[in-house]
Design a protein around this nucleic acid. Structure first.
Lengths: 190, 190, 190, 190
DNA sequence: AATGAATGAGACTTCATTCAT
DNA sequence: GATGAATGAAGTCTCATTCAT
């Protein structure tokens, strides 16, 4: 691939990443192209159709999250903190895109599936460990935890420390844990 | 209104209620008509435009929720249980429609506004009482609680006792409360 | 035909006459029915379709005009005055409907055709006589005079003595005629 | 703008100009597109909506008329002849479109408004001068003259020398003028 | 027979996708 | 290879016409 082609592809994914994150999964192709400073034609040269672009963005996002997750996992810290880090990482990403792709249930995209599997595997690992260390409640499967993360983060303007995330994290905390619920939600005047 | 017209109006609202709940606020008029076993024209005879239908469905939903909320409030039970009942009532309703209408910010529909205000008032009342009785965490405003409910329930297939709702409710529970977190999430195989 | 049926038919034609005259040939069937205080169904019972109603209104109008024309013709007055009377009669009638039907060129409606023929015959008679008496310019066919009348009158709010009618009549006046152009147009401030 | 785009835009305006002139202001976008040999989408790329197309056609028409009017005004000829030239220019143009836009009363389109004002100014100038030179009857305001022109020309197939135009012009001629009414209408067999 | 509800074709418009330049 | 113009299917809405009550 030529240098300019690579540059264009990059511009597209950057623009799409931002727009999908800021405005949800329904942004028009025209708009993405405009934000990338390119014509639609170029967009379609790089991605055969809208789904392909969406999947690419999803994949890139998952790769990033996976890298960050692995880094967090490698650290010598309570698994609960690793979980929190994974949530923090996901804030500001196009999670609603991930979710809508997941809901659409596309079984034919190996790369995406692999990434999802890998991410799920990492998450599962952390979830199990956190459950073992007694910080994460035991009655949830990793998938369900994933669902809750998605939920907490699939909002425009989601931040890692806002009320929703805090409450969800507290809800995930093990009940027997005395240290639970130390996070305080800032009461905002709407 | 003639018997057949009433019957058809009912069919329309039933179909719309279901489709908006199952598939979100973007279902097409054509599809709603089809689901009701009617032509599009009939839809438009009963509701001048898409917004009107959406508002009607929203209003009906809010009325139901409000009735149920008032009934629950009237009962002699812990306010926490009232909150739970309100959440339970909302499951399976077109909450995402409510949300999108709220976001669209239509100030010109008195009935809807009144219902929203009344519902908010009820919720606020319960929230404050639950915070007073020490079951609901004190660092959240009623609006934030509302936001969390919306979040927990604006999903296709949301159920009153699924993992998401359970975790969110637990996250809302006051930390000092020894009885907290008794609810068990069923571990589902995805 | 029963008495109430006749009454309804009358209501319809009255309403249609007025609406076609005031608002042109595009009024909706619904609106005509409403103005008549009836349901659309009743309208369609009396007139198989929109064209039929339009033709009926056109026919009624032509009949009226024809009666008035014949009365005027019978009088002992200059033929020019008869012409003017015919124009005056036509003001406030649904002339644009007549025109649009004429343009649509429906050859299959005997009654309408007969009426048009009869009216044309009367007009032709008057036109020829006026041309003979030297008041109407000689370079126009009766059809063209008819066209000009239509033109002068196919306006919402056309009145028998407004600027347009005056100018058209003056333009029709024979040039050699010393008495021509006595009519003064009121200069309106728009 | 690319060559093909310009060509297509031209095709659209040409087709629209013709259809609006021949069939009035209500032609469908579909039909205009078909007449231009293009898809509807292309129409909408060039003109955001129906009104925009209509305004463009109106503006182009007014520009043409204004140019021709100014050229005629600049000539050393009786103002009456200038008036006639202005009428002649307008024949075959989509005057009914102009009229309907005027009636719709769009105050938000500066260009169109300027053109209308400029054209009205030119016409007013010529009308006053013709009244001063004694050829145009004095009992009409420029607006009324404009109204008569519209009337004479808002017909499908209006031609500069047909019976209607001739009669209207003769009706506008000053009565004291001995030379009046020299124009002969061709008697058509319709 | 009267009513007005139901129908569906057609109008306007948007946007994912294809294709000429 | 890039561009943005062209396409047409699909969505919302209207209205002439049909039909159940």
């Amino acid at each position: 691939m030529r240098a300019d082609a690579r540059r264009n592809r990059e511009r597209i994914t950057t623009a799409a990443l931002r727009l999908f994150a800021e405005r949800g999964p329904e942004v028009s192709m025209e708009e993405i192209a405009r934000a990338a400073g390119l014509g639609v034609g170029t967009l379609y040269r790089h991605f055969p159709d809208r789904r392909a672009l969406a999947k690419e963005i999803a994949a890139v996002t998952l790769e990033d999250l996976l890298d960050a997750a692995r880094a967090a996992i490698a650290r010598d810290a309570p698994r609960w903190d690793v979980l929190r880090a994974m949530v923090a990482q996901a804030a500001g990403r196009p999670m609603s895109l991930l979710k809508s792709l997941l809901e659409a249930g596309d079984t034919e995209t190996p790369r995406l599936r692999e990434l999802q599997d890998a991410y799920n595997a990492s998450l599962t690992e952390v979830v199990r460990a956190a459950q073992d260390e007694g910080t994460l409640r035991r009655d949830l499967s990793p998938d369900q935890v994933m669902g809750l993360f998605n939920l907490a983060l699939c909002r425009p303007g989601a931040r890692a420390d806002d009320a929703v995330v805090t409450v969800v994290l507290d809800g995930l905390r093990s009940r027997g844990d005395a240290a639970a619920g130390t996070g305080q939600v800032r009461v905002a005047g709407r």
